[in-house]
Design a binder for these strands. Structure first.
Lengths: 209, 209
DNA sequence: GTTTAAATTAAACAACTGTTTAATTGTGAT
DNA sequence: ATCACAATTAAACAGTTGTTTAATTTAAAC
């Protein structure tokens, strides 16, 4: 029963942190929504901040795995690797929009320095992987001489911008306010097509006939 | 003396909100850093939340002005208009990074519904203006058939991603940790060149000779 | 059935929150 | 000099915060 309960608390915590932020979420809010006693959070996690740390740590390594797998797959061309990574990013972020917003908040609010650093170093690892793919493409003269780091920033930035506000996405899709765009396959398709179209135009050299 | 003091409080508030978030900033923090009495914030602004509202409202209209000016300037081509808007965005955001982070936080944390809506409607106005420019370019067959909304999202998303963390920018530029990238003209130039290069490749039709 | 330890609870803790009050100081007009 | 009003202050307010305690319940082991 205890493991389930612990995970239940973590799940509710992600929702609340994503909605109200870390400071804006009280342990009493969390305890009430998770239907547990106030003391259980500190009993299981030690403190509110440690709960947050564990949330980030748990998901972070999961987010690393796919990129590393794609990067080391030698049977793929560089542009195919990028397309796979874009697919992976969009899919993961759309299936866990709440957590991803917690992630973004921690990157944005620089109050808890150690957490900020954790999130940052994770992002930098992903940046390095993608940059090395783009640089390979440039060396093979398949890609234009672009700015590899900022190209990755544009990919991630596009997705993050979309993740920022559900309401923004709904006006984007001409959907009603109560609609959940992150579960809408049309929305996912639209974002994927846009990013790939833009990245391809940005990277691939158009051979003049 | 009173107007100066009021603006002084607002200035310190932007810094603190950007650094610690709205919930993470206490009125006592603010009063201490601004070197005023705790009661002065409520005396001038009524409440902490109204102070925040005024911060947003004051800057918001300033951010609107340039886009409207560019959009109505008939002597510019569509791609020139976009370049001007990109210039304006980057310049404004780099000169006021603290405020912009406050802006992003409010978009991200959905706790104060009315503030969230204010920020959102402002963003939507800007989106509409830029989208109409891109659509004109498509109609004139100067632009490819892209997704106008998401193209704007990519422009803004790239800038926002860069604004998210000073530390991230420094590793991006191979700069030391105490460096302020937002005041570095090389950094600005690099971002501007990347965004324009990417947007041009994405939009402009390459005529096959 | 007793024992042992984990799980759970309500209550209390001290510190902090935004806000208000009531008293005091400062300033400009008459 | 006096009045009126704005500006400023320290203190107190009521409520919330994260955390801890000490008591109780639950559950498994022997």
């Amino acid at each position: 029963m205890s493991v389930d309960k612990k995970e239940h608390i973590m799940h509710v915590a992600i929702e609340l942190f994503a909605e109200k932020g870390f400071e804006g979420t009280s342990i009493r809010d969390l305890a009430q929504k998770a239907d547990v006693n106030i003391a259980m959070v500190n009993y299981y996690f030690g403190s509110k901040e440690k709960l947050f740390e564990q949330l980030l740590a748990d998901k972070a390594q999961f987010m690393r795995a796919k990129i590393e797998a794609v990067e080391s797959n030698e049977s793929l061309t560089e542009i195919e690797k990028l397309d796979h990574i874009i697919d992976g990013y969009v899919t993961r972020f759309l299936t866990q929009p709440e957590f991803h917003r917690v992630f973004l908040q921690e990157l944005l609010v620089n109050q808890r320095a150690n957490l900020h650093q954790t999130v940052l170093s994770l992002f930098e690892k992903n940046t390095r992987d993608v940059v090395s793919i783009i640089e390979k493409g440039i060396k093979k003269k398949q890609f234009k001489k672009v700015d590899p780091q900022l190209t990755f920033i544009s990919i991630v930035g596009t997705i993050n911008q979309v993740m920022m506000s559900k309401e923004m996405c709904n006006t984007l899709m001409n959907a009603s306010a109560n609609h959940n765009p992150y579960q809408d396959p049309k929305f996912k398709k639209r974002i994927l097509e846009h990013i790939k179209q833009m990245v391809h135009a940005h990277l691939i050299i158009t051979t003049v006939s």
